[in-house]
Design a protein around this nucleic acid. Structure first.
Lengths: 226, 226
DNA sequence: GTCATCATGTAAGCCGTTACATGATTGC
DNA sequence: GCAATCATGTAACGGCTTACATGATGAC
C-alpha cells in the first residue's frame, strides 16, 4: 500500500521523505495522513530490497552557482526547486527508483490476482497511478471497482429493507446517505469507463491542459533523474 | 471503536457474537467487515472489564413443545421461531450489558475530548448511536464533523490548485470526485443539523415509522433482556 | 452423507499510529 | 533569541486481518 504509493511518486522524479509525505497528503486523496513513523521505515525497507537508491544530499550544495550551465539539468532542477519551494537545508536523503523498483511497482499496481484489492484505498491509489497501466488493465480496474460497488449496493439495500423497522432516524440517515454516495460513485465510474472507451478524444472537454500534462509526464519519465 | 459498537448494539438487547457481527455488517454502515478474529477477543475483553455479562445458552433450551406434542409440530414451532429470531442452536454465549458497560458506553460515545475522533469511522459510529446522546451533544457532534470536513475541503482545494499542473487526468478525476463527495457530505450534515434544530417536528416527513421505532426502542430497553 | 450455515475461538502478523528524540535553517 | 518549518529517525503499542482449529445443526 504505502510502498505502492512511494514507488508511484518516484516514477517521475527522485524525492526525499518529507516531500513524499507532502505529495501523499495533497496529491493522492487517499492515504492522506501517512505519518513519518511509517514513511521512513517504509523507505528503508524499500532501500534494503533494492527498489530505491538513496543519495545523501550534502548540507550545503554548491550554494547558488549562477548560470554557467555546465553540469547539466541536475543543478538546474535543484535551483528551480529551491526557488519555488525554499530548499536545500541539511542532509536530506533523496530516493531514486531503481529498475527493480519499477518492476515491483508494476507488480503492485497490477491488482489482478491481488486479493483484498477491493477497498476504496487501494482502488484510489491504483487509479491515481492509472496512467502507468496499459489501457485494458485500466479498464478492468474501473470495471472491477464498479462491479464491487454494485454488489455491495444491492446487498446493503436488501439488508436495510430487512432491518428497516429496527432502525432509528440516525442510523437510517446514515445508511441512506451511504447508499446515495455509492450510487454516485458508480455513475462517476461509469463516466470514467465511458471516457476510457471513447476513441482517445480525451482532449476535448473544457478543462484543457490535459494533453499538456501528459506531454510533461512523458518528458519527466525519460530524463530528469534527480 | 469496536467496543463502542458492541456496547451500542447491546444497549437494547442481549446478543451473541455471531449476531453482533451480522448487525455490525448490515445495520452500521461503518465497521462493515469486522472479522471474528477481532470480535470475539473484544467480547472477552469487555467481559473481563465487567462491561458485559455472558450467559452460556444450553444446546437445547426446553424446546417449547406446544400443546399438540407431535414431532412435526415441535419442528414447526422451532422453525418458526428460528425464522423470526434465528434461535437455539448449540452453546452460544449471549452477552448482556451491565451498568458498568453503560457507563463505558456513555464515555466512549462522548467524543468531546476524544482526540482522533475526527475520522469518518468514529463519526459514523457515533451518529448511528446518536439517539443515546443528549440533544446538545448530538448537535455538537454534527457541527464538529461539519467543521472538520469544511476545513479539509479548503485545504485540499488549495493543495489541488497548487499542484494542478503536475496532475494527470486520473489523479485529477480522483481529487475532483473526492471534493464533490465532501461537498455533498457537508450539505447532508447541514440538513441533519437543521432537522436537529427544528422544534422536534421530526415525525412530519414522508417516511413515517419514526415514532413507532422509537417507542419500540424504549420498550426493548426496559424489559426483554434476553 | 455431505455441504452450507451457524458458532466460537487462537496465533501470527501487517500496517499503521503516537510519542519520543534530534537537529538544521528561516523568518520575525 | 525564539518559534515555525524542514528533516530524519526509533520504540512501543493498537487494532484489525488472515489463517487455522473445532464442532453443531439443518437442508437437500
Amino acid at each position: 500500500m504505502l510502498e505502492l504509493a512511494i514507488l508511484g511518486l518516484l516514477q517521475t522524479q527522485a524525492l526525499h521523505g518529507y516531500e513524499i509525505r507532502k505529495r501523499l497528503r495533497d496529491e493522492l486523496g487517499v492515504l492522506s495522513n501517512v505519518s513519518f513513523g511509517s514513511l521512513y521505515p517504509a523507505l528503508n525497507r524499500l532501500e534494503r530490497q533494492g527498489a530505491v537508491e538513496a543519495v545523501e544530499e550534502p548540507s550545503r550544495p554548491p550554494t547558488r552557482v549562477p548560470m554557467t550551465g555546465s553540469l547539466s539539468g541536475e543543478r538546474a532542477a535543484l535551483r528551480s526547486r529551491r526557488a519555488s519551494t525554499g530548499l536545500s537545508r541539511r542532509g536530506r536523503k533523496v530516493y531514486r527508483i531503481t529498475d527493480e523498483g519499477r518492476r515491483q511497482f508494476a507488480a503492485l499496481l497490477d491488482s489482478e490476482r491481488d486479493a483484498g484489492a477491493d477497498d476504496a484505498r487501494s482502488f484510489g491509489l491504483r487509479l491515481a497511478f492509472a496512467r502507468y497501466l496499459p489501457p485494458q488493465a485500466r479498464l478492468r480496474l474501473l470495471e472491477r471497482r464498479r462491479a464491487h460497488l454494485a454488489e455491495r449496493l444491492t446487498e446493503s439495500r436488501s439488508a436495510a429493507v430487512a432491518a428497516a423497522d429496527r432502525l432509528d432516524v440516525y442510523t437510517r440517515a446514515l445508511l441512506e446517505h451511504a447508499t446515495e454516495s455509492t450510487e454516485r460513485d458508480i455513475s462517476w465510474l461509469d463516466r470514467l469507463i465511458e471516457a476510457e472507451r471513447s476513441p482517445s478524444a480525451t482532449a476535448a472537454p473544457g478543462r484543457s491542459a490535459t494533453s499538456a500534462v501528459e506531454a510533461q509526464s512523458l518528458k519527466q519519465m525519460e530524463g530528469d533523474p534527480l
